[in-house]
């Protein structure tokens, strides 16, 4: 007990040193493992569509932004407990998430999820790999006859399919496009499935002003067409636009 308080006191000292500068910083939380939306580039920095988008939004809103990465599993709990101010991590707008956080308007149109497999696979009765805790995993549990195989990262779902552990992968189509393009034997199969209401930034419910600010910035990017240009640049020609 004593140690905890001592530690807290020591920390309080550190923190008050740091408060010397007082321009406010908005901290953007992302996963850093979901290309092309967000990933860590060769230099070890956050990169990708959302990096470009987030920087542009901050510029328009005249905010000082900082990027932080956080594990996907605890990305919402860390937001609501105040460890960063916004999530911008390829997060689809779903009713369940909306109960806990507030989303901006979507900055990508509802984009389809797709199955990828090596060779032709009959999806009813197939073993389908998906990332734990995603809307895709939830979708597979509802498919008749299909068996869900869950992995902690999207990388591992693809690796499992390559290794023959799973017959197919269900993931965001935007994530799978580079995978399919970069490989000779992986292809899309079946029909695309629309899941989720597009991707939006998530904010604490108690923080409506910040949400409004970013919402307005997204709107302005939609209005002058820069958002569409950015989607083409980062997500490809085939990705749906506004």
């Amino acid at each position: 007990m004593k140690h905890i308080i001592l530690g807290a006191a020591a920390l309080a000292v550190c923190a008050s040193f740091a408060s010397a500068q007082d321009d406010s910083v908005v901290r953007l939380g992302t996963e850093g493992a979901y290309p092309p939306y967000n990933f860590i580039n060769d230099a070890g920095e956050v990169d990708g569509f959302e990096r470009a988008l987030g920087d542009e939004l901050c510029k328009r809103a005249e905010l000082n932004c900082e990027w932080v990465t956080n594990d996907w599993d605890s990305i919402i709990p860390n937001l609501v407990s105040g460890n960063y101010d916004a999530i911008i991590a390829g997060m689809s707008i779903t009713p369940e998430r909306e109960e806990v956080v507030d989303f901006t308007q979507n900055y990508t149109p509802p984009s389809p999820s797709a199955f990828a497999a090596m060779g032709d696979v009959d999806l009813s009765g197939a073993v389908i790999a998906a990332q734990t805790g995603t809307i895709q995993a939830a979708h597979v549990t509802g498919m008749d006859g299909a068996t869900l195989l869950e992995y902690p990262t999207p990388d591992e779902t693809v690796a499992a399919m390559r290794a023959g552990e799973a017959d197919a992968v269900l993931s965001d189509k935007d994530y799978l496009i580079p995978v399919v393009e970069g490989s000779d034997d992986i292809q899309f199969i079946g029909e695309d499935i629309p899941l989720g209401g597009g991707i939006g930034m998530a904010f604490r419910k108690s923080d409506p002003e910040l949400r409004e600010t970013f919402d307005a910035a997204i709107q302005s990017m939609k209005d002058d067409g820069t958002l569409n240009e950015m989607i083409i640049e980062h997500l490809g020609e085939d990705s749906p636009r506004f």
């Binding site: 605890s74 709990p77 609501v80 734990t132 805790g133 068996t147 869900l148 869950e150 902690p152």
Partner: peptide, 28 residues
């Protein structure tokens, strides 16, 4: 089930389900 071995048809151990609920309720 936390590392390495995948969960089959959502049959997992206690931590797997605890993780599932933490994930769905956003409350660890």
């Amino acid at each position: 089930f936390f590392s390495g071995f995948p969960a089959w048809q959502q049959r997992g151990d206690a931590l797997y389900y605890a993780n599932y609920f933490a994930d769905k309720t956003f409350n660890p």
